[in-house]
Structures are given as structure tokens and as C-alpha cells.
Computed example of a mutant assay.
Amino acid sequence: MKKIRLLLCVALIATTSQVFGQGQIIDFLKAGQADANTLSQAYLLPYGEMLGVNLNSGWYNTAKVHKIGGFDITFSTSYTTAPNSKKSFDPSSLDLKAVAPENTGMAPTMAGSKSSSMGFYMKDDPSKTNIIDMKGAGADYFVSPMIQAAVGLPFHTEIMGRFMPTMGYGDYGEASLWGIGLKHSIKDYIPFVKRVPFLQASVLAAYTDFGAKLGVSNTGSLEGIGTGTGNLETSAGAFTSRLLVGINVPVVSFYTGLGYGTTTSNFDIIGDFTGYEDTNNPIALDYKTSGFDFNAGMRLRFAIFSLHADYTVGEYSVITAGVGINFR
């Protein structure tokens, strides 16, 4: 179990490092703290939204509710991709105080191609020399492995939980996660569904909380920014409510879910970075998303073992696949 939790930690830290390892956000501090936050907010938008969407995934692989005392333990991985509309942004729409884009084109977000870039220069510089080269990071996906368990309760209800205590991975960082959910069968409330043994219907509500800390630093290699060290501290919360409908027959079952989710995510760089201007705890960003999505999937069950996979259709697409042990 400890190895699985370490795998979760490594995967989440690795995805974050993909964005921040190149020092791009620290580089934005050349524009001053106000513009650095404005640029970072636009640049990291796909990451903030993909994180929240991903945390709302993987909660179920059937519409059926466990009987009293029944349980399952499931390990799954969710792969979220950013749409093309989130791979660039219009810098002219930003309220930039000190810097301006080098042209009227679109600038890449962190999900943009590594070959795309946009320069920014100080507005009071008559030579219009670029001090920032905003580059795409090619980070147009987010992957999170997850382990969770569910137990059947009275009144056709089951409780679900996911948990990863604070786990560190060397000097790279640490991450933690927990979540809780409830699923309740509504089959008996629907006359047609009640009379068909293989049809299932239920409702689900679940919440996931995530936190991570990743070290960031500048050794002086970024011109215009003095040396400094600190941490990127990430926190996110995701809530989903869903209507589930499924068909359960021997060996194979199919399930669909229509739901509404809300997510919040916050990114703060905590530390001291001096140079162009004194910056203490210089970056503080927050993102909020909400909306409907729909998924459909299939599960294969062999005795107590199962395999499942599903696809979620929404602004951000999600593919989830996993294995599990199921009883009753």
C-alpha cells in the first residue's frame, strides 16, 4: 500500500514539475509582481482547470450500490486533456501595467506547443527589448492515479473514500489527498427500472481535497531576478454530483453518468525572490470551474476481480481506467 501511495505522490509531483521545472513562472517576476500574477494566471489556466476536473474523476465504475457489508477496493488512473482553446490566450486582453506583448498575436499557455512563444517588453523601454520569453510547455494533459474503497451501508447506500497521507519524494516535493463520497440507489423509486433486474440507477455526491508542495528556486541564471528559493504550494477542492444509470449482467456491465461539478484550485509561490523588485511570496493564483459533463464506460468482472474503463465528455475530456476487487 505504501508503494501505491508513493506512486500517487510521484505522478502528481511529476505532472506539476512538467510546468514549473523550467522556471517560467519565476521568469515572469521580471515584469514586477502585479504583472507576474496577471501573466501567470493566464499561462497556468489549463493546469488549474485540469487539476480540478481530474480530481472529480474515477469515483465509480458501476451504477449498482453494494449490499450491506459489501465492499470494493479500486485502483484507477485518470488522464485529462486540455482543449485547443486553452492552449493559447490573447495577451492584449490582460490588464498589464508594466509590460506589453511584442505583437498582436496569441501567446501560449503551459498547454501550448513548446515551439510557440511570445515576448514581452517594458512599456517604458523605447528599444522594446524583450525581457520575457513566454514559451509553451507542451503540458496539455494531467494524469492522476487514485486508490479508493467503498462499503455498503443500510438503506441502499454506500460510502466511498480515497486517501493519501502526506507523502514526500526526495527533495522534489510532497503531496496529500483525501476524499469522501456517498452513493444511493434510486432503483426502487422508478417503477420501470424496479421491475427490470439488470437495470440500475443511483445518485452520487463526492468531494476530493488535494494539497502539494514543490520546491522552486532561482540560482541567478534568470537575468533580472536575484537568487531566491521557495515553494509552490498547491491546494484544490473538487465536488461532483451525478445521476448514474447502468446495465449489470454476468461478466460485463455498462454505466453512464450525467452530473454537475465545481472545482477550485490555488497556487502560491511562497519564498523570497529579489532583483527587479523585492518580491516576498510573489505569486498567488486561484481558479474556479463549474459545469455539466457526461461519461460512459464498461466494466468486466471475473469472480471478485474487475477491469473498467470510461470516457468523460466535457470541456476537458477524461479517460479513466482501473482494476478492482469487489465483493457483494
Rank of each mutant, 00 (worst) to 15 (best):
K3F: 10
I4W: 11
L8I: 10
L12D: 14
S17N: 14
S17P: 01
Q18S: 13
I25S: 00
I26R: 05
D27V: 05
L29M: 14
A34K: 10
L39R: 02
Y43W: 13
M50P: 01
G52S: 11
G52W: 00
N54R: 07
Y60W: 12
A63K: 00
A63E: 01
K67L: 03
G69A: 09
F71L: 10
D72M: 01
D72K: 00
I73N: 01
S76E: 15
S78M: 08
Y79E: 04
N84W: 06
S85K: 13
K86L: 09
K87L: 11
F89D: 00
P91H: 03
P91T: 04
S93Q: 14
G105D: 15
A107M: 08
M110G: 01
A111H: 07
G112C: 10
G112R: 05
S115E: 14
S117G: 07
F120V: 08
Y121T: 05
D125V: 10
I131M: 12
K135F: 03
D140V: 04
D140H: 06
I147L: 15
A150F: 04
L153A: 12
P165Q: 07
M167T: 13
Y169V: 10
D171G: 07
S176A: 09
S176I: 01
I180N: 01
L182R: 03
L182M: 13
I186E: 12
F192E: 08
V193P: 09
K194G: 04
K194W: 07
R195W: 13
A201E: 08
L204D: 11
Y207W: 15
F210N: 04
G215S: 11
T219S: 12
T227S: 15
G228M: 11
G237D: 13
G237I: 05
S241F: 11
R242F: 05
L243N: 04
V245I: 12
V245K: 03
N248E: 15
S253W: 00
Y255R: 03
Y255L: 07
G259K: 03
Y260F: 12
G261A: 06
G271H: 00
T274M: 05
T274Y: 12
E277A: 07
E277R: 06
N281G: 09
P282T: 06
P282M: 05
I283A: 01
K288C: 02
F294H: 04
F294D: 02
A296N: 01
G297F: 03
R299L: 06
R301H: 03
F302I: 14
A303E: 13
A303I: 12
G314L: 00
V318T: 14
T320C: 01
F327Q: 11
